[in-house]
Design a protein around this nucleic acid. Structure first.
Lengths: 202, 202
DNA sequence: ATGCTGTTTAACGATATTGTTAACACAAAT
DNA sequence: ATTTGTGTTAACAATATCGTTAAACAGCAT
C-alpha cells in the first residue's frame, strides 16, 4: 500500500471514529507513519481529504439505492429491496449516518451538493413507479400513500436503527453481540413493517 | 436576569446549536455581554458549565418519563403516554438527541453516570407492569413481547424522528413548516404504531 | 473618605492545530 | 556527473482556545 493510500485509509478510520473536528491531521499522519505535512502534500488541505472520503461513500450509497429503486417489478418488493440495500450498506459503515449528521451541523453547505442528485433520484423513482403505484392503490392492493411519504419511511427504517446504537451501548449497556442481535431483528422488522404498512391483504 | 443566568442561557443555546467542541467560551461570554473570563469565574471550567446544563435536561427527561412509566392503568395506554411524553419533551429541545450523541462520542464516560438510573427505571417499570402484561398477553389482548423490546420501541419511536430532521432539511429541502407537519404526523404515527404493534383486536 | 466584597476586564501563558516552506534524500533521466 | 522530480521531514507562522491572575471597578457599610 502506497503512503497516499495509507493516509487515506487512516483518515477514513479516524474521521469515521471521531468526526471532522475531533480528528487532527497529525494523528492521521501518525497512523500512516509519516508527518502531518504529508497530508497536505497529497491532499492539499484537511477539508479536501475529508470530502474526498465522504464523497466516495455518498456516491456508493446513492449508486446502490438507485440500482434498486429503478428496478422493475412488484412495488412492495422494490420498497423492501431499497430498504434492505440501504440497511446493508449502512451496516458496512455503521458510523456513516453520524458522519452525515456531523457534517450537516459543521458544514451545512456540503450536503446541499447532493440535493439535486437525491431529488432527481426521487423524481425518476416516482416516474417509474407512479403509474403502477396508482393502479395498485386503486385495485386496493397497496395502501394510499405518496411517494414522498414512502421515501421518508424507507429512510427512517433503514437509518434510524443505527443512530440509536450509542444509546443502547452507553445507556442500556448493550455489548457487541447484543447490538448484532438488535440489528438482525431490526432488519427483519423493516421488511415486516413495510409489508404491514403498505401491502393490503386480499 | 443576572450575568450568571445570562451566561447559562447563552451557553445552553450555543451548546445545543453547535455541540461541545465547536462552542467556545468566548462566544458564550460574548452573547452574555461579558468576557470569557467570567465563564470560568462562575462555572470554573467549560466542562463543568456544560455538564451542569446537560444534567438538568437529562434529569428533566428521566423525571417525566418516570412519572408516566410508573403510572397505573391500561398497559397500552401507559406505553402511549410514555412515548408521547418523551416525544413532547424532545420537541421542546429538538437538538437534545444530537447533544447526547455528541457526548457519547466525545465523552463516553459521562453518559454512564446515568446508566444506573435508567436501568432502575426499567426494572421498576417492569416490576410494576410485568404481571398485568403477562395477564394481558395470556388473555390475548396484548402481543407477545418483552419489556426490553418495548423500551427499545418506545425510545425508537420517540427519538428517531428528530434525528432525521437534518437529512430532511439539508437533503430533501424541507423548510420549517414542512418539519412541523412532519413532526405532527410522526406523533400520530407513534400512537398508531404502538396500538398496531402491541394491541390485539378482540 | 476608607475599606471591604464581589464583579469584571485585559493581558498572559500554555497548548493545539493547520498550512507553508526550506532543506534534504534519493532515484531516474540526461 | 549533473540535473530533475518526487517524497519526506523539521521547523515556522498564524490562529484559536482555555484557564489564570493581577489589577481595575462598583457598590455598600463603616
Amino acid at each position: 500500500m502506497t503512503k497516499e493510500e495509507e493516509i487515506l485509509a487512516a483518515a477514513e478510520d479516524e474521521f469515521f471514529r471521531n468526526g471532522y473536528d475531533a480528528t487532527s491531521t497529525a494523528t492521521i499522519a501518525g497512523r500512516a507513519g509519516v508527518t502531518h505535512a504529508m497530508v497536505n502534500y497529497y491532499f492539499r488541505t484537511k477539508e479536501q481529504l475529508f470530502f474526498k472520503i465522504i464523497d466516495t461513500h455518498i456516491q456508493g450509497f446513492l449508486g446502490s439505492l438507485k440500482k434498486v429503486m429503478l428496478a422493475e417489478g412488484d412495488f412492495i418488493q422494490v420498497l423492501k429491496g431499497a430498504a434492505a440495500a440501504l440497511f446493508d450498506k449502512i451496516r458496512e459503515d455503521r458510523k456513516f449516518p453520524f458522519i452525515i449528521l456531523d457534517i450537516s451541523r459543521t458544514h451545512p453547505e456540503f450536503l446541499e451538493r447532493y440535493r439535486e442528485t437525491v431529488m432527481t433520484l426521487c423524481r425518476e423513482s416516482i416516474k417509474r413507479h407512479a403509474q403502477r403505484l396508482a393502479e395498485q392503490i386503486q385495485a386496493g392492493k397497496v395502501a394510499d400513500c405518496t411517494m414522498e411519504n414512502i421515501f421518508e419511511t424507507v429512510l427512517d427504517l433503514a437509518a434510524a436503527p443505527f443512530l440509536k446504537i450509542p444509546f443502547l451501548e452507553k445507556i442500556f449497556g448493550y455489548d457487541e453481540e447484543m447490538i448484532d442481535r438488535y440489528l438482525q431483528s431490526r432488519r427483519e422488522d423493516i421488511m415486516e413493517t413495510i409489508k404491514r404498512k403498505y401491502a393490503i391483504k386480499p
